[in-house]
Design a protein around this nucleic acid. Structure first.
Lengths: 343, 343
DNA sequence: TTGTATGCGTTATCAA
DNA sequence: TTGATAACGCATACAA
């Protein structure tokens, strides 16, 4: 029953193979420097003992970990989950492993995780969005760990990023909304504080309104964390207004799904009574009934590219920020406004 | 611009504080062993230098990492994402960090990740389901790293687990299906190989058929990996049969969502022409139109409990496997079979 | 091609 | 209460 539980080290392998520890180390890291014969000896010793290198010792001695860290707001949202899955797969191809932490949209937790991951010797870090305390960027610079911002793209900074311009991404959507004749517009957003993506989407809407000669201040804005339930609640508030909006634009598809659900429960026709739009284009969007009009974001591509960029940054190569394009997906939940009548 | 980028070590702190490295180490790990005065000196030196301990050195010297690993099939499925989010949050409360790897349902990748995580000194491992090569369990036992199986519950093993009995979980659903009068039943499953959860669900269906006097071999079974697209394709195959089933039961909600989508595209009424059922009860399920009849699984609770159990196992405590209960969610996609007519 | 010796940044043992 | 100093398991510069 109780097998000896003995965890072999380099030294054990060396002894068994009758060589030095240096040779074993070489055999594992740069096999071509060895002669056939010794390589064979070492390999069979490794196999016999079931040796596996101790990672901590390895990275302590070599001063690199082949590990990258990612700090995302939450795993419990398809967009991050999907992007991260792609990120991780590509990292695997590069021989690196991923450590994920989630901040729950809390800056203090994010900072803590950044410190933890740094202490663990992460060779690089993936962060979501730009918004964070400057001390974080200073910390990163001081420790000399490369960091890549994803899910956002800005040009007026030296922080490398891969993503899209949220303000620009939502433009075709809001312009379509306005072109259809909507004048009584609502937007259900995530809390804008500490969230540049959310903020930029709202800004994009307001700017388009301005350009179209509408008063940006007339935008009915509700801020609430991303969740189906919150989408429902926000939608309920909107339709209870004296003059309910003719379109409820949502900061992401999850909120929009909540809005659609609530509309159904209240027997309000979408899009005849009220139009609804989303952002992200997750699976939900095309499964909803009617299918959700939204903005498609290339999450998988973003994850994959992020891994490649970060890999290069870790190798001290210079990499340029990369802008990805998004695409309007016109589907069933957006149409012309109902005849406007005050209640 | 270019700040000195100097990463302080214990020795630096010690020098600055005018004490030995041992004292600094103590100050950080068991502060009450020190005098007020020195503690103060050390602390301010730590603060001034912005010292943070090197995790790898720490775990090499202390032989523990406060890290647990989780290997899941994929992050890109709401059920794992959600369970993992809860798992991670609870681990955080216990002062542990999580490393996630995904196997893409491939046993070889799973083994590789297990070795990697073990090499990193994971104090414990979370695995999904029972099905895996015995050599893996031997490896784990040999290395003496505690492992917890989640998403499944079996009694005839000494492997600790938290989850539910998949065979039992699907029983109320298939019994309802039969009670409604369905005799021409199809099941769209994930590949059963290396996946006890998938296999047990099919077994549960067959056993119920047997008990009801139906021929279990009459079950129309399609195996295909979990995805919306595969759900669509499988559904299409089913309705193209000479005698299409009156109900398409699906191994999970994602496949079911695909089936519903395909039915819509083919203008086949759900549930009038064909009933559809799922498993898991992810958000999709209650957003679909009609809402999906499925089996609810307490993913968040499972993640949280898993963290607590694994924490105890790491502390060498004995813990019992824990069975969670699932619940039938009767919604809109299941009804009596259409009049049976051969084509 | 291979071996020796040193260092990586901690913790922990043993004295003082 | 504190300080030397030896591990911890590996990589690597240097020597052979």
């Amino acid at each position: 029953m109780s097998q000896s539980n003995f965890i072999p080290t380099l030294a054990d392998v060396a002894k068994k193979a009758g060589v030095s520890t240096a040779t074993v180390s070489r055999c594992l890291n740069s096999p071509d420097q060895l002669s056939q014969a010794t390589r064979k000896k070492v390999m069979s010793a490794v196999a016999e003992l079931g040796y596996a290198p101790n990672f901590n010792a390895q990275s302590l001695a070599a001063r690199r970990t082949n590990t990258v860290g990612a700090i995302i707001p939450t795993m419990d949202n398809a967009i991050f989950a999907r992007g991260l899955q792609a990120f991780q797969e590509e990292l695997g191809n590069l021989g690196k492993t991923l450590i994920v932490a989630s901040s729950s949209y809390r800056p203090d937790l994010e900072l803590e995780h950044i410190k933890t991951l740094t202490a663990r010797g992460a060779d690089g870090l993936l962060l979501i969005g730009y918004d964070r305390n400057p001390e974080i960027y200073n910390f990163l610079k001081q420790r000399d760990v490369p960091s890549l911002v994803a899910w956002a793209y800005q040009t007026d900074t030296d922080q490398t990023s891969v993503g899209f311009n949220n303000e620009k991404a939502i433009r075709p959507l809001i312009e379509e909304v306005i072109a259809l004749g909507h004048r009584n517009i609502a937007f259900i957003s995530a809390p804008k504080k500490n969230n540049d993506r959310a903020r930029d989407r709202v800004t994009g809407v307001r700017m388009a309104m301005q350009r179209a000669g509408l008063d940006p201040r007339s935008l009915k804005l509700i801020e609430t964390p991303y969740s189906i339930e919150n989408g429902q609640a926000a939608f309920q508030k909107l339709v209870a207004l004296d003059c309910p909006p003719t379109v409820a634009m949502c900061g992401n598809d999850v909120l929009a799904a909540g809005a659609i659900k609530q509309a159904k429960e209240m027997a309000l026709s979408v899009p005849d009574y009220i139009s609804i739009t989303g952002f992200d284009d997750i699976e939900l969007a095309s499964l909803a009934e009617p299918q959700l009009t939204t903005v498609h974001v290339p999450h998988k591509a973003m994850g994959k590219i992020a891994a490649q960029m970060l890999g290069k940054m870790i190798d001290q190569q210079i990499v340029e920020s990369q802008e990805l394009s998004t695409e309007l997906r016109l589907r069933g939940t957006l149409t012309t406004p109902r005849a406007c009548k005050l209640k």
